[in-house]
Design a protein around this nucleic acid. Structure first.
Lengths: 210, 210
DNA sequence: ACCGGACTAGAGTTTTTACTCTAGACGACT
DNA sequence: AGTCGTCTAGAGTAAAAACTCTAGTCCGGT
C-alpha cells in the first residue's frame, strides 16, 4: 500500500480518536511514518485529505441507500438500511461530530455535504412514500407528514454518533448500536402497520446474529 | 456595563457568527475594545469565557424546563416549552454546533454538559410520563416507549440549530423556527390524543402572534 | 550507462494563538 | 496627602500549525 493510502488511513484513525480539529498535518505525517514534505507531495493541503475521506464516506453511503430498492420494500431491506448506515457513521465518526467546523474550513466540502444531505433526505422521503404505497404505512398525514418523517430520520441518524461521543462513549458496543437503531426506528414505527413493524424488528435482531 | 460583561457578550456574538473554534482571545479583546491583558485580568483562560456563557445557557434552560410543571399539563405550557427552548438554542447556537469540540478542550465543561443533558432527558421523560398519566398520551408502549420519546426529543432539539447552520442558514427566520418546532412536535404527536394534539398546535400558533 | 518521472526526507519559514509581564490610571477611605 | 485595591493597556513570549524548498533516492525504459 502506498503512502497516499496510508496517510488517509492514519488521518481517519486519528480524527476518529481525537476529533478532526485536534489533528494536524505534522502529526499525521509523524504517525504515518512519513515526512511532512511527503504528505504535501500527495495532498495539496489539509482539506484535501479530509475531502478524500468524505469521498469514501459518500460513496459507501450512496451505495447503501440507493441499491436495489425494489418494491414492495422488504423488512429485511429496511433492517439492512439501519444496520449498515449506523456502522458507516461509526467508522467515519469524526465527521459526525464537528461537521460544521469542517464545512466552515472548506467551502468546497460544504457544498458537497449539503448536496449529499439533500439527496439523502429526498431518498428517505421516497423510501417512506414507497412503504406507504405498499400499504404498510398507516395514517401518514399526507406528503407533509412523510417529509417530516424523512427529516427526523435524517436528524436522528446523523447525530446519534455525536450524541454517543458527547456522552463520553469512546468505543462503541453492540448495545449502543442497538439503542441507536431503536431510536431511529421509533421515529417511523408508530406509523407502521403492526405486522410490518414486527417484521422489521425481527429482521434487525436476525441480522445481528452471527 | 463593565468590561467583563462586554467581553462575554462579544464572545457570544463572535462565536455565533464564526463558530467557536475560529474565535481567539486576541480577536475577542480587539472587538470588545479592550487589551488582551485586560481580558486575562477578568478570565484566567479562554475556556473560562466559554464556561461563563454555558452558565448563562444552563441557567435559562433549567428555568424554562422545570418551572411550574403543574398537573394536568396544559397545552399552553407545552407550547411554551417548544418556543422558548428553540429561541434559547438559537441565541447560544455556537454551542450546538461543535459541541464536542468545546467539550474536548475543556473536561470541566464536558462534565457540566453531560450532567445537564442527563437531567434534561430525565425531565423530558417525566414530562411525557405526566402527559400519559393525564390520559393524553395513547398507546405509549410503556416506560420504554416514553424513554425513547424523551431521548428523540432531546436529539432533535439539540441538533436542529446545527442542522440549520450546516444547511447554510446564517440568519434564522420565523419559518425555520416553525419548521423546527414542527419537527420536534412530530416526535410525540403520533402518540397524543387527537384533541390534545390539536390544542398544542393551536397554542403554538397563538403564541407566535404578537 | 543514463535519463526522466515518481516519490521521499527533513530542515526551515511564516503566521497565528494563547497567554504573560510590567507599568500605570482611577477612585475610595483614612 | 497618601495608600491600597480594582482595573486597564500594550508590548512581548513561546508554542504550534500549515505549508515550502531543496536535495536527494529508486526504478523502468532506451
Amino acid at each position: 500500500m502506498g503512502n497516499r493510502e496510508r496517510i488517509i488511513e492514519t488521518t481517519l484513525r486519528l480524527m476518529n480518536e481525537l476529533g478532526a480539529e485536534a489533528v494536524g498535518t505534522n502529526r499525521i505525517a509523524a504517525e504515518t511514518g512519513v515526512s511532512p514534505g511527503n504528505l504535501y507531495y500527495h495532498f495539496g493541503n489539509r482539506e484535501e485529505i479530509v475531502r478524500a475521506l468524505f469521498d469514501a464516506l459518500e460513496h459507501e453511503f450512496r451505495d447503501v441507500l440507493q441499491r436495489d430498492t425494489e418494491r414492495p420494500l422488504a423488512p429485511q431491506r429496511i433492517a439492512a438500511f439501519y444496520l449498515r448506515t449506523f456502522d458507516l457513521a461509526w467508522r467515519y465518526r469524526f465527521f459526525f461530530s464537528g461537521t460544521l467546523g469542517l464545512l466552515r474550513r472548506d467551502p468546497v466540502l460544504a457544498g458537497r455535504y449539503q448536496a449529499l444531505q439533500s439527496w439523502a433526505i429526498a431518498e428517505l422521503d421516497s423510501i417512506a412514500t414507497g412503504i406507504a404505497e405498499d400499504g404498510n404505512l398507516a395514517h401518514p398525514r399526507g406528503a407533509e407528514g412523510i417529509a417530516s418523517l424523512a427529516l427526523n430520520t435524517w436528524l436522528i441518524w446523523s447525530n446519534w454518533i455525536g450524541f454517543l461521543q458527547i456522552s463520553g462513549i469512546a468505543e462503541i458496543r453492540r448495545a449502543d448500536m442497538t439503542a441507536g437503531i431503536n431510536q431511529l426506528f421509533d421515529v417511523i414505527a408508530p406509523y407502521l402497520v403492526p405486522p410490518f413493524e414486527a417484521a422489521i424488528r425481527r429482521a434487525i435482531t436476525d441480522e445481528w446474529a452471527p
